[in-house]
Amino acid sequence: MLWSNNVNWLIDQWDELERMRRVMSGLDRRSEAEFPPVNTWISSDDSVVTTEIPGVVPEDLDITVTGRTVTLRGSRRVDDAEAGQRFHRRERWSGDFTKAIELPFKIEADKVKAQFKKGVLYLTLPKAEDEKPKKIEIKSS
């Protein structure tokens, strides 16, 4: 039917527009930059950043801090099928990742602590001394 063809055409056009919109706004970029997902907690003195990277060995993880940004780089290799082996399911991720997390304050790079427990990375990132609020004494004259 002509009418239904038109509707389908409209839907197709809409999907295409929607796809373009997503691409342009960056929503469709399921890139490495977004992996792994992180949770960020903030207190008055520091920040705790957690991320789930099971199976990553600490030697394959690289954490760098510059200014307000902490960058996580790492990789995980999953076993390839050897001779005589067959994969029935293959859902686990593999490969490299890079993720930059920007905090609302400058980080005291020397005091950053990293802990890796049960496949979860915990980063404690203290606020730089010069960014902490200073109390100004008022002198009475």
């Binding site: 099971p54 005589g84 994969f87 859902e91």
Partner: peptide, 22 residues
């Protein structure tokens, strides 16, 4: 959890990503 399941002549190996679990 996402899993890998590998079969060979000896049996099956199931690997699951379960961060936060010990």
């Amino acid at each position: 959890p996402p899993v890998d399941i590998i079969e060979d002549e000896k049996g099956l190996t199931l690997i699951a990503d379960m961060p936060g679990v010990n």
